[in-house]
Amino acid sequence: MRQGKEKDFVMVYLDIVSGFLGAGKTTFANLLLDFYIRAGERPVYIVNEYGEAALDAEIIKAEGFTAVEMTNGCICCTLRGEMTRALAGLIEQFSPTRVVFEPSGVFMFHNFFDILENKDLKGKCAVGNIVTVIDGVNYVSARLEFGNFIYNQIESAPVLAVSKLDKAPEGLDLTELLCDVKNVNSNAAVVTKPYAEYTDEMLSELFLGKSDLYGHGEVCGCAACGHHDGEGHDHDHEHDHDHEHAHGHEHDHDHEQHDHAHHHEELDTVTVEMNRDFDEAALATFIDAVVSGALGEVARAKGIVFLHGKSQLLNITFKERELRPFPCYDKPAMTFIGKGLCREKIEEWGKPGA
């Protein structure tokens, strides 16, 4: 764990950074971890990845933070016991003041919070902040196919952070996104700034409760809502969360089922070893196969591939793709999540000389 200023504490606060597949949760979690260090906190990170590969934890570890990964399942159902053990172990070993938890992209909130009622956690760990990251580029496409996950995450978070605004096409209109989000959760603070423009003052207001900004409208500078940095808002929002946040706000939210079924059965997940060394042409053909639907309806593909013998992080969200160098990694693999995935075709791409 990277060391911040030492301080006594009574309770460890669990912050949840949720968001659908590929929304930018890990980037936001990294931003939040860095902020907490500067603020004198002692943060650690837990990530739950729906597939078998544990890349997000490796990304955070590369930044110098303590990170624990839980893979091949979802924390809100199959991995609940593992989450309890992981939290208790982190608290015992590292004495953190904050745990930043990134659940899988298909996480749904109902029935999650009773984890903290476990005898090993009760009185030691409480819910801190909850933020849902919303994909500013792919929201509309994702909502049409996977709205049950996305709406559950949006309605459960007091803070909504719109991501990828630095990558958005010129002239991107957020009006539809913002109207949709406000219809789902009118009480939330909606942040529509690129991550690079998040200041410590703004993060303190949102996550350390040092002003009344928390939960009061947009914190933005976008043309879609016409407000800037929280100015000009006359919102009278009440929060209904059934927990007390670390920043001292009390919320009375009733975490009911919201008539949602847990729809993980709608999704396929395939993790394959990528045992081939790509050149540019072969890698471009592979990426085209993913985004064209030739391998199934892929909502997210993420993993490590070799390009001319060097490890690269490949990240595909719907038709968006990103490729960047990754520190030397000896376990090249990719996880695909979507509907109607063709395992045989995906596995073929991972074979040497395919």
Rank of each mutant, 00 (worst) to 15 (best):
V191I: 07
V291C: 13
G136T: 08
T317V: 15
K7C: 15
N187K: 09
G248L: 02
R98N: 10
S104I: 12
K7Y: 10
M202H: 00
H263T: 11
A53Y: 00
Q93R: 04
G303C: 10
E176S: 05
F9W: 09
G340A: 07
I304Y: 09
L116V: 09
D15F: 08
G136R: 04
D180A: 04
D8G: 08
E102A: 10
H228Y: 14
Y139V: 08
H237A: 09
F113Q: 13
K124Y: 10
H245W: 11
T175W: 01
V68Q: 04
T84C: 12
H241S: 00
T97D: 01
V106S: 12
H249C: 03
V270N: 03
L177Y: 02
W349D: 07
E348H: 15
K164T: 05
P327F: 03
K331H: 15
H249I: 14
H258C: 04
T175K: 06
P325M: 05
I150V: 13
A284E: 14
S104C: 15
G293H: 08
H258E: 06
D240M: 06
G230C: 10
V291A: 06
F112R: 06
P43L: 06
R276E: 09
M334E: 08
D173F: 02
F149T: 09
K7S: 14
G215A: 01
Y45G: 06
L341C: 08
Q153V: 10
E63H: 00
S141N: 14
H251T: 15
G217S: 05
I59Y: 03
W349K: 11
F65D: 13
N185G: 02
A57N: 02
R343F: 14
I130C: 07
N72P: 14
H308D: 14
L341F: 13
N152M: 04
S104L: 09
S204K: 04
Y151S: 14
E250I: 15
A188I: 05
G89W: 00
G338L: 07
D330F: 04
E69W: 01
F207G: 08
K210N: 14
H228S: 07
P352M: 02
F326G: 11
P327S: 09
V44W: 00
G81E: 10
E266K: 08
C220L: 02
T71E: 14
D252M: 14
